[in-house]
Design a protein around this nucleic acid. Structure first.
Length: 270
DNA sequence: ACCGGAGCCTGTTAGC
DNA sequence: TGCTAACAGGCTCCGG
């Protein structure tokens, strides 16, 4: 499941492959991928436009084009982006394709069809409800404390709320809580200042490690070239139910919290 | 403000 | 071994 580090990895790989190239045609083979505008308008507006840049905002990939248009893609659960030669065999779950002026294609493969594609004049229309980027220099402990203040909520759903902090998903939420030594069921209004700082640190540590390891190939995620990331080898609790904690002698447990499977060490996390 | 549930999807896994 | 049913998971919408 692509989260901030996985999406960042995708951006770093495909940015140099796309910038300066022009879309000469699209193949929309499962039209519901296109969130807006309607597929016909999408196709006519995007054809002929050139990629000016590629960047990440939370788990969204943002592609500024010329003519004041911006393409935005969210990979959700199983989305995968790759730039390949047109002759390269197409996977059966590739539903949306952008043909380039270089005999190459940007292909969006998405087995579970949860992903979404947007073409907008103003990116804020799609991105406006997102909280701060947890790796921005402006995301200080003080800012994080401010986000926590006044809320009464279990830490796990708090971390997953994209309008509070943007980019964390199920894997990195569980890992950040383990790094901070905090139970996922702890409530935001019970944290001491030192615990807030530990959680802030835990979030940044696991996300930076995830980027350094080029993402976690745990369910379906692989890098654009099809190779696995390395972050799955660094994971301390996620999907380690019943296995021993690396730090103490307790067994990793799994509960359901806010409709999400949640993994933690009952020995290390308080 | 927060919680729970439904819905969207299909490959994988658990259970018989 | 082979089948079916439940599950996973990000996000949105809805009602409480």
């Amino acid at each position: 499941m692509p989260e901030l580090p996985e999406v960042e990895t995708v951006v770093r790989v495909i940015r140099p492959q796309l910038v300066g190239k022009r879309i000469i045609a699209t193949r929309l083979q499962w039209a519901r991928h296109i969130d807006r505008p309607d597929p016909l308008e999408f196709q006519s507006r995007i054809t002929g436009l050139t990629f000016l840049d590629v960047y990440r905002r939370a788990k969204f990939l943002v592609f500024p084009l010329d003519q004041g248009e911006t393409l935005i893609i969210h990979l959700r659960m199983s989305g995968h982006l790759t730039v390949v030669d047109r002759a390269f065999p197409q996977d059966k779950h590739t539903h949306t394709v952008f043909e380039l002026n270089t005999k190459q294609e940007l292909r969006f493969r998405d087995t579970r069809k949860f992903g979404r594609v947007y073409l907008v004049k103003d990116p804020q229309e799609v991105l406006e409800n997102l909280g701060p980027e947890p790796l921005d220099l402006s995301f200080t402990v003080e800012v994080f404390q401010q986000l926590i203040s006044g809320r009464k909520r279990a830490l796990k759903p708090f971390l997953l709320d994209q309008s509070v902090i943007a980019g964390i998903g199920n894997i990195y939420a569980d890992e950040a809580l383990f790094h901070a030594g905090l139970l996922p069921t702890r409530r935001t209004d019970t944290l001491a200042p030192g615990e807030v700082a530990a959680l802030h640190r835990g979030i940044q540590d696991v996300l930076l490690l995830g980027i350094a390891r080029e993402g976690a190939s745990i369910s379906t995620y692989v890098k654009p070239d099809g190779e696995m990331g390395e972050m799955q080898n660094e994971v301390k609790v996620f999907r380690r139910t019943g296995e021993n904690c690396y730090r103490c002698d307790h067994t990793i447990e799994r509960i359901n919290l806010g409709g999400r499977s949640t993994h933690y060490c009952p020995g290390c996390q308080k």
